[in-house]
Design a binder for these strands. Structure first.
Lengths: 339, 339
DNA sequence: TTGAAAGCGCTAACAA
DNA sequence: TTGTTAGCGCTTTCAA
């Protein structure tokens, strides 16, 4: 910078003003030109470290996540956060702690030592977390809710998602609608919420909830296949004509069970999933109607509040809507059922 | 830090020595203790920005990627890179440019302004890239090869992967083995390489390659289904007993085509995929035998060379092995074929 | 064994 | 309109 100043015949203060754009208005146009030319000639490049030391702002935000590796959704969250950061001229510093408390402490230290301007604490699936102490009070939680409350947080609106899913089915004329739920032992916060949504829609439609139709299994393809199989093997009058599956993987299993019995989706059975899992939901045959998890949007939201672009109510988590993705797995019930 | 020094009755130089561990040996034990206590009492926290300014090392490495969002593999690469960085006390600064040249230039500026110690340029699928100018010469390329050459890079060993896949099939006794390839218009660098592997194994096994068995389609489930269907509808003596699919999505389609014809995997048709796509390959029924893309390992490798922990030959990309993931989609050929 | 002092590259009061 | 100066918090010779 002093090279530039010397070359332009001005002081470094002037160079700073011109090049940073701050107070540049107060520098004469000719001087500005000279400075810029000199900078160009010298090949000047800003040293943000020095600037940060002086200004006490780094324009970096730390993102601590438990596992970026193991879920295909992580990317969308990162992308949302990253996009906002970029739009605002910020950089994101990523740390994956794999849920290890020690690693978390280390990460926190490293990030605060690095003077990041803000922090985001992200979970790669919706759950309630015990926030590590040392996490700054203004850190924002992404895809998780703080056990203790009192922090800005964003999670998917699972209940509304359940409502939307089941409404699709009711609207198509179904009345015997199953919910293929995850087993309780998995402690998924989404599970009871989606179930509430399911019950609500049935109630609205004047359909009595049949406990038989609330099946539970491991939330993977195998579980979905097995649970759907049990339901399909019910006597004709008890059998569901539609299934709302806890996730797309279970839906994948439900497809298998259906095809295995020589039945077809959606002619014999309509199916709605959840997650809109990349490279899966759209590739089933027929393509799966599902509820998308708003990972990208949540990532954006979190970064926006982290950067102070948007207010957040620490009293409770922000609920991000889960859009319906209509594809081809929902149709009217079979004629025998008066659809 | 001066607070700590004052409290301990020493100079900041001493505090620095003790707390940074550098030259700490030359400070008397009592002094060390006093310094540490003082630091504790004051709640001292290192300011890495100031240290970086002084030492000209930030212990941050920049990772520029074209798209973290759109592929489920991205996470594993990031995880690999992140793990190595963590082990070495480094932080990774992530920028997703979405392939936009402008964003790339910006990112490059931001990162070098931030004085990152190293850079990694990552692609989220294996391809040849035109490296943006301004990318430092010692940046390492991850999952892509530089069009111009001359840079450290790591990519999957697709050819060896193809060999491994087809060997599984040959070992199971198959002789009519199809390759469900991606269409040429997709310009996938993996495609000809995997095909080479396929041909090599056939040659080794003394099997003549039948062009009919080299089917091409869009590399998605629909394409796989259609191409597999064509092959399955061939007259009995021309029909393959096994298929090597370009990726797991095509394999998923091949399953569908098989089941649709009332046939079974692996009794009537053995299938090997590629990618070991999370939440898919393992969940097909039966679980898919496939070749894993070594994303995590490539991420590690790239970070290791970026940090100077490992030498790299800039002359050509490092080929990372793709392991075989044996599951249940390969069996002997049907009896009629003398398996 | 410890301290003094300079300086990393920048910005922001304040003066001129 | 521009320059002087101090200083962000740390590390590192060099001297004591």
């Amino acid at each position: 910078m002093s090279d530039v100043a010397a070359r332009a015949g001005v002081s470094t203060a002037t160079v700073s003003m011109v090049l940073s754009g701050r107070d540049a208005a107060r520098v004469s146009p000719q001087t500005q030109r000279r400075v810029r030319e000199a900078a160009e000639e010298v090949g000047y490049e800003l040293n943000s470290v020095a600037r940060s030391l002086r200004t006490q702002r780094t324009r970096m935000v730390g993102l601590i996540s438990d596992t970026i590796a193991s879920t295909p959704f992580a990317g969308r969250m990162l992308a949302g956060a990253n996009d906002v950061a970029r739009e605002q001229g910020n950089l994101v510093v990523l740390v994956d702690t794999e849920g290890d408390a020690d690693a978390e402490r280390q990460a926190l230290n490293a990030l605060s030592g690095q003077q990041v301007d803000a922090m985001i604490y992200a979970s790669m699936w919706h759950r309630v977390v015990e926030v590590p102490d040392g996490l700054p009070g203004d850190a924002v939680l992404l895809d998780c809710a703080p056990a203790a409350g009192g922090r800005a947080a964003v999670v998917p609106d699972e209940r509304a998602g359940g409502v939307a899913a089941v409404r699709e089915l009711v609207a198509a004329g179904h009345r015997r609608i199953a919910f293929l739920d995850a087993e309780e032992r998995f402690q998924l916060v989404a599970s009871p919420l989606r179930y509430e949504g399911y019950l609500q829609v049935l109630a609205e439609a004047g359909i009595e909830a049949d406990p038989v139709l609330h099946a539970r299994a491991e939330p993977v393809a195998g579980g979905g296949r097995e649970a759907a199989g049990r339901l399909l093997d019910l006597p004709a009058e008890e059998r569901p004509t539609a299934m709302f599956c806890f996730n797309d993987r279970m839906a994948m299993g439900a497809y298998a069970a259906t095809h295995h019995r020589g039945l077809s989706v959606p002619d014999d059975l309509s199916i709605v999933g959840y997650d809109d899992q990349q490279l899966v939901a759209a590739e089933l045959d027929p393509p799966l109607t599902t509820i998308a998890l708003p990972h990208y949007e949540m990532g954006r939201w979190a970064m926006e509040v982290a950067l102070g672009l948007r207010p957040a109510d620490p009293a409770e988590p922000h609920l991000m809507p889960c859009p319906v993705i209509r594809r081809a797995s929902v149709g009217p019930p079979p004629a025998a059922f008066g659809g």
